[in-house]
Write a protein that binds this DNA or RNA. Structure first.
Length: 794
DNA sequence: GAGTTTGAAACT
DNA sequence: CAGTTTCAAACTC
């Protein structure tokens, strides 16, 4: 049963609404769940390399019943008593470099050993090699881990409606069609997907570390629902890079309200260790109890791209979606979810209905009392912060910022007419004083998730209180926003998911559901530094405990500071109108700003042309806007060019070569001729040495100047002779013995630097003279300042 | 700064 | 897919 009508489905990008893929995925042979075959070594992966970058995110829900650690990283949560779950993600979900465990035999399923490792092969399945011990037998008492033994796959970690961390443990045959469930024996069901949640306090990755670590709740299997999203990479010829996303929604067994997670119009399975699992069909609502006002539905996402990076709890980025009303525990909630993860898209959609029993069908309507969908993404101290764009129209757009991902995501939702009145509570917001949000019914909505910006490095998710619908997460920086006027571009919409990473889509004010504004991501990131991104579906979102997610990622192999500090060079385009990839600005998804281009169309005034150009580029190359430098395969260099260079004359030792320019060596996929950009190349080494020497010189000179200047300033300050009240002394009177000595030190330093650099004497003399001039100017400056600033003391 | 070289992007 | 053209950056003088 499909929630989304075929018509709507047809409008959605395949990446999001590829419900067929789900069916296909169910029929996939087992090897599709295994890591990519070795053939990828010889065959350049067409999948953007960023998806190959494993990411490790640790979830540390408080629980004493289970511990999971990653053997590949030795990363552990900071508490010995808390449940530890390490999720490694490869562009989408957690991935580690360990070999995925084989499916266990039925006999193994009877035991519940401790989880020794969590692995996730390239197919984006998280595999738990061993599971925390728990009482044997079918009984899965509260506090006992229900994860299956070695080889079991944990696909997604998230939060239950009540804020409990959810771990989805899949049986080894999970890839089989799991549309029905057997009896109450919650274990070893061939088609059963198990969900493990931590009961008690809201224990979510999004929560602060203290919140998680401090919690003493036990891991408990609960009745739950699972959703499965099968998604294929947009472009992949490197093998069965099939990504599976299991969205889980834990339901308390005592639940009386309903929650009907709907992903891409299809609900796959439901299982519970406590009660007999049953199949969930589209639109079906399962009652559940809202435990408290702070209950929420959260989806933990680990889209970080950094390889081998282990993130503590505080580093986990979670996109949370409010799904609960504190005042209406009986309200049914439907949560279609699409949330973009890296290139993957996971849309989180939430709706609430007044009907306590059944709700959330595809015919649900939306009533938007608070026209806002905000996703705030935060990162610390970097320019990679995300910006929340206030929505002036009904919440038909959700910006989803996935920390660690190089993309910003915006979910475009075409909401139907509203009818629901149920209130939805903020996922993290527990502030009762906040105005309750109206229900958001978007079951039949058209959802689009669009990567909108390159996002990498540290992200800090700090939900900020929102007291009104019009509020959006603000940043600590200049609230400047550059938003293109939205226009109706239906001809482009089908490809919205392929928009360049620098494109942000936002609904246009008064332009209806199909209005879009294109906002280059870099501008967005400039707006918000740091940006605290919060995803919520209502206006009551707030939290007393900011959630911080920090990741140490890099963009194109550059550190965050490096990537951010480097000012983009202005382009000089004259013929391309800055609407072709010749233009670096355009290629980077940025507007031209302070460029020297002629007849530039890469600006706000030429939105339509720009969109068309983007579409054209994407038509030619769907990954045209992906970073060219990405993570190489295992065993290869950390960074490599995704396509390889084609140099013929430069020997790949000039900046003509994109590999050399990126300071990486050419790889096997390069088609260059006479390449000298390889590890043992003497030419390359020579160049590197020269470059290093030059850099060292610069650094030394800078440091020396800084130090000596500081000394001079200090001396001038301390030894400033008293000035007469009649105008003070002349500057030369400030040349005390100390000042003269410091000046000589400066000159000698210059001489030494020149000597170290093997500079000729003339150059050394010149440097010394220049330094002397600077010293004199500084002395004079201080003298003048002393006269001005010290009229009393001098 | 003008002219040349270079290789990616675009085009055929 | 290969060859050619266009383009803008890198480079040289």
């Amino acid at each position: 049963m499909d929630v989304v009508s075929p018509e709507l489905n047809s409008l959605l990008p395949d990446e999001i609404m590829d419900t067929e893929a789900i069916a296909m995925e169910e029929d996939l042979p087992a090897e599709h769940l295994a890591p990519p075959p070795p053939q990828s070594e010889a065959e350049p992966a067409q999948v953007p390399m960023e998806t190959e970058v494993p990411e490790i995110v640790s979830l540390c829900p408080a629980s004493t019943s289970m511990q999971m650690t990653s053997t590949s990283t030795n990363a552990q949560c900071g508490t010995s008593t808390g449940t530890q779950l390490l999720l490694a993600s490869s562009g989408f979900m957690a991935v580690t470099t360990t070999t995925p465990a084989k499916t266990t035999s039925p006999a193994l399923t009877q035991s519940l050993p401790k989880i020794s490792s969590v692995t996730l092969p390239a197919n984006h399945q998280l595999i738990i090699n061993k599971v925390a011990s728990s009482p044997a037998g079918d009984g899965k008492p509260p506090g006992a881990a229900v994860l299956k033994p070695e080889g079991q796959k944990l696909l997604v970690a998230g939060l239950s409606k009540t804020g409990q961390p959810i771990m989805l443990a899949l049986p080894h045959s999970w890839n089989k069609p799991a549309t029905t469930q057997g009896t109450g024996d919650g274990k070893a069901q061939a088609t059963q997907i198990k969900m493990v949640t931590a009961a008690g306090k809201p224990v979510i990755a999004v929560s602060s570390a203290s919140q998680l670590m401090g919690s003493s709740t036990t891991l408990q299997a609960q009745q739950l629902k699972t959703l499965q999203i099968t998604k294929k990479p947009p472009v992949s010829t490197a093998g069965p890079m099939i990504t599976k996303l299991i969205i889980t929604k834990a339901l308390n067994s005592k639940a009386s309200a309903s929650v009907s997670p709907v992903v891409t119009g299809r609900v796959l399975t439901q299982s519970t260790p406590v009660t007999p699992p049953r199949t969930i069909s589209i639109g079906e609502a399962i009652s559940t109890v809202t435990q408290n006002a702070s209950g929420n539905s959260k989806v933990a996402i680990s889209p970080l791209k950094s390889p081998s990076k282990v993130l503590n709890l505080s580093n986990l980025t979670v996109v949370s979606v409010a799904s609960q009303s504190p005042n209406s525990p009986q309200k049914s909630v439907t949560l279609p979810l699409n949330v973009a993860l890296g290139q993957q898209i996971l849309t989180v959609q939430q709706s609430a209905a007044t009907s306590p029993a059944k709700a959330g069908t595809s015919q649900s309507t939306a009533q938007t009392a608070k026209p806002m969908q905000t996703v705030t993404v935060g990162s610390m101290g970097t320019s990679q912060f995300k910006t929340i764009i206030p929505l002036t129209t009904p919440p038909n757009v959700q910006q989803i910022q996935v920390p660690g991902s190089r993309f910003h995501y915006v979910r475009l939702v075409t909401a139907t007419t509203g009818s629901g009145t149920a209130q939805t509570g903020a996922s993290i917001n527990t502030n009762p004083s906040i105005q309750p949000a109206k229900s958001v019914m978007m079951n039949a909505a058209v959802r689009m998730s669009v990567p909108i910006v390159s996002a990498q490095t540290v992200k800090q998710v700090v939900p900020k209180p929102l007291t009104s619908a019009a509020q959006v997460v603000t940043t600590s920086q200049t609230p400047q926003r550059l938003i293109m006027p939205a226009t109706h571009l239906p001809q482009i919409q089908p490809n919205l998911t392929n928009l360049p990473p620098g494109t942000v889509l936002t609904p246009a004010h008064g332009s209806g559901n199909m209005g879009y504004a294109v906002l280059p991501a870099p501008y967005v990131t400039q707006i918000a530094q740091p940006t605290f991104v919060t995803l919520t579906s209502n206006s009551t979102f707030s939290t007393a405990t900011p959630i911080q997610t920090q990741a140490r990622l890099s963009l194109n192999g550059l550190s965050t500071s490096e990537a951010n500090s480097r000012p983009r060079k202005p382009c000089n385009c004259t013929r391309s109108q800055c609407l072709k990839l010749y233009c670096d600005c355009f290629a980077n998804g940025e507007f031209c700003n302070n460029c020297n281009c002629v007849n530039c169309f890469n600006n706000l005034d030429h939105e339509s042309e720009r969109l068309k150009a983007i579409k054209a580029c994407l038509d030619r190359n769907p990954v045209a806007f992906k970073p060219k430098i990405g993570k190489g395969k295992q065993g290869e260099s950390d960074r490599r060019h995704s396509k390889g260079c084609n140099c013929k004359k430069s020997g790949c030792l000039k900046n003509y070569c994109e590999c050399y320019e990126a300071k990486i060596m050419c790889s096997s996929i390069c088609k260059c001729m006479g390449c000298k950009n390889f590890e043992e190349s003497p030419e390359r080494k020579t160049l590197m040495h020269l470059a290093d020497a030059a850099e060292v010189r610069v650094q030394q000179q800078t440091a020396a100047k800084t130090k000596l200047s500081s000394q001079i300033s200090d001396l001038l300050t301390r030894t400033t002779p008293a000035l007469t009240s009649g105008g003070g002394k002349l500057p030369y009177t400030f040349v005390t013995k100390e000042v003269a000595e410091a000046t000589c030190d400066c000159l000698l330093e210059q001489a030494e630097q020149a000597e170290l650099a093997n500079q000729p004497q003339a150059v050394a003399e010149r440097l010394m003279l220049e330094e002397f001039g600077r010293c004199l100017r500084r002395i004079i400056s201080f003298a003048g300042k002393a006269k001005t600033d010290c009229p009393i003391n001098c």
